[in-house]
Design a protein around this nucleic acid. Structure first.
Lengths: 184, 184
DNA sequence: ATTAGCAACTTGAAGCTTCAACTTCAAGAA
DNA sequence: TTCTTGAAGTTGAAGCTTCAAGTTGCTAAT
């Protein structure tokens, strides 16, 4: 299976560049890289084909569907969806055009809320099973329960490092900080 | 830490949509999702800022640098880089414009090889340490050796399922099959 | 010796994301 | 009050990726 990599990326020698990581790390990194390239691509394209939406759009709508009133302020939605405010703004515009979400301007400050419409909700309910069947097939069916636990642990550790410093647009740091403060 | 998620995504009740996955899976999925959204974004933006190239471009050049003659046919490069041929073709054009790679038409069939130039090699040598310092900081410094092993195992399993069926452009399946055949 | 079919690209358009700049609103300082 | 600052969004342009539709060069039938 990994003969491919072995053949196409031969061991370095004096005339070739150094490896920058030790063997264990290098191997883990190659695998991780492949996973986070291939998995999102697979999920995205399936959802696009069978439900006509991207995975990010799905995530946004799913997050809304779980909120009371099916609405949430954009800055919070950005945090939940792991995206920048700018990206979100564009996405909400697209979803609005399709009639799945509408903007409702909030009361305080410049707040804008995104609200899932009934049409959007129906669409989401239709897409959900399709999507999660695929997630199950690609992820949970191939892993043992122990591996799922390991996965959760390791990704949890990684996120703990990533979240506090990720710059999802210049605002995210403050946003995350604020959201954490009010929720603790 | 996860209070955030807990607050912003409350438990479902009768009026809210079902969860589609069980608790363990759901939690693992949320974490995995965050990781493969945040980690590539972090890596990409750092590499872009400090070396003026995307992570994908880095990967392509790094793969070339390890080949004899620092060159490789595009279809094989596509496999190594986990990208579609089309994407690769565009990327190679960009890298050519910057003088880091050149196209060399191969001998058989319609083969085209990409070859890393000296300038590209120097650039890569400059970017490598910068990049891998960040990888180490974000990934390997936060994980224990055991967790690195787990990560490698789990991603290995996932890839085994993903690789054979991933449709990286309509050609990838055949490409992968071919590449595997000739290397086994 | 044609011709059909496939493999390996290339290309242009459409769609998404990022980036930087700009607008608006709310508070607090002066 | 007026000024300043910062938070929350919006927007347009630039850059990348994907998708579909070409090319072009083998190879295997007929």
């Amino acid at each position: 299976m990994n003969n491919l990599k072995r053949q196409l990326i031969p061991e370095p020698d004096s005339t070739r560049p150094p490896r920058w990581l030790n063997n264990h790390e290098w191997s883990a990194w190659l695998h991780l890289l492949a996973t986070f390239t291939l998995l999102p691509a697979a999920i995205d394209s399936q959802l696009q084909r069978e439900a006509g939406m991207s995975h990010f759009e799905f995530g946004v709508m799913a997050a809304l569907s779980r909120q009371p009133g099916r609405r949430l302020q954009l800055k919070d939605l950005a945090v939940v969806a792991n995206g920048s405010l700018s990206r979100l703004s564009h996405v909400i515009s697209r979803l609005e055009r399709r009639g799945w979400v509408r903007r409702v301007s909030g009361t305080k400050g410049r707040a804008t809320n995104a609200e899932l419409t009934d049409k959007g909700y129906r669409k989401l309910m239709e897409a959900g099973p399709v999507h999660f069947r695929e997630v199950r097939r690609l992820v949970f069916d191939v892993l043992t329960p122990q591996e799922v636990k390991d996965l959760r642990r390791v990704t949890g550790r990684l996120n703990a490092g990533l979240i506090p410093e990720t710059n999802l647009g210049p605002l995210a740091r403050r946003v995350r900080a604020g959201a954490l403060r009010q929720s603790s």
